[in-house]
Design a protein around this nucleic acid. Structure first.
Lengths: 223, 223
DNA sequence: TGCAAATGGTAGCAATACTATCATACAAGT
DNA sequence: ACTTGTATGATAGTATTGCTACCATTTGCA
């Protein structure tokens, strides 16, 4: 019997837990596909419903609107990275090594085998790179924050910041560096792909080069 | 006679140059107001038209859609920062001093007197902090880039990168640092205001503290 | 087998994102 | 003063979006 893994996400994100039903899991899986294919702005529930042979009304039973669906996906991603970091740094002593693993996790965001069958993490990563910030640059940010919809991002930041402080307890801004590490990773991957004049990454292997770059920055800042 | 200043923006941004007419300038001025007030997602041309006693149809004569209007505003901002940097570093020799001025310009984005009467730069800065990345995280980014709609951002990055290289010619990733400086500034200002757990800024004077923080990072990276 | 929960099907409505057409105003040149 | 052009206003209309409501059917499981 396969181990059932469930990532617990804040229940303010959905009306009905999509992990708990077949249709719900289909919604998650194909929303990732469709958003990747047509972009978040032109994505909507009608198109997704058509794609999975369901109806708009059914999708609205799971998510209030497409913004909350995106936020759900991004939350999943935060939790996934969190999991990756914990898993991969387990049993590692040297904090510098741990930090390198964090960088690797942020850049590649992938593992040999996926956590659950209905989420393709590398496609999810693409969405986070492309559309991620839209999930928290919203007029309702304060209200959404107050009900905990960004907790996973904060948790992730705290973990990274704590390892930064292990590496160098005198570094004055560990939290800022942590959140910036996350944002910078995605930004530079985006720029490398779409606006190459805004980055030094030019090699065809963007991920590898972004990884080297981030390690270079961290060395200068912390070592 | 007052000096007429005109910022030249790529004409792919608009259908009809808003700087050239009374209504056009009103559109710019009040779009900044309304977007600040209700957020970009719920902003639309009908609401703006009502606000300025004009009509939807008239606004569509200036801008294809609200996305391009936002991109116009963000382009204006890039040009404005560019101008600020050039103006404020003029006659300064020491590149380290120049870099500090850049940081100050990015964080405060303000001057004693505004460049043109129809743009309130500090309100525009708020929009860039809040909604800025949406202007270039769009499915049409490649096409828009190919007709030059992000040239101002690239120019800005080049100027900053060149001064970074003056400070330390051995620093391996000046362009990345330049674009990240811009992104990080706005991000940290946003976090300080809306998601304070994602930053070390806690003081009430966010701008001042972000400025100190950025200078601290730059020192570690370059000096 | 039967009941509850999940989903499908259809309809409809208000708002959004435009486009088209015509009227008016005003300004510039002859 | 007369014509012409350009800018704006006024109105209307259309397709799509973003939902909500309601009822019918299917499915899972007690």
């Amino acid at each position: 019997m396969p181990v059932k893994i469930k990532i617990d996400l804040n229940d303010g994100l959905y009306l009905k837990d999509p992990q708990e039903s077949k249709l719900g899991r289909k919604i998650i899986k194909f929303s990732i596909e469709v958003i990747n294919k047509i972009g978040f702005e032109s994505f909507n529930f009608k198109k997704l419903a058509t794609e999975i042979n369901s109806t708009e009304a059914s999708l609205y039973r799971y998510f209030e609107n497409k913004h909350l669906l995106l936020l759900y996906l991004v939350n999943w991603y935060w939790e996934w990275i969190n999991y990756l970091i914990i898993f991969n740094t387990m049993n590692i002593e040297d904090p510098k090594k741990k930090l390198k693993i964090i960088v690797h996790s942020l850049v590649f965001a992938t593992m040999d085998n996926s956590l659950v069958e209905f989420i393709d993490e590398s496609k999810l990563h693409k969405i986070v790179v492309f559309e991620g910030t839209k999930a928290y640059h919203t007029f309702e940010v304060n209200k959404e924050d107050s009900i905990g919809l960004f907790k996973s991002y904060k948790d992730l930041t705290i973990i990274i910041a704590s390892i930064i402080s292990e590496v160098n307890p005198d570094f004055k801004y560990p939290i800022t560096l942590a959140s910036n590490l996350f944002e910078m990773t995605n930004n530079q991957l985006y720029f490398a792909k779409h606006l190459p004049k805004l980055t030094d990454v030019m090699n065809s292997n963007h991920e590898k080069e972004v990884e080297n770059m981030l390690n270079y920055f961290l060395e200068k800042l912390l070592f």
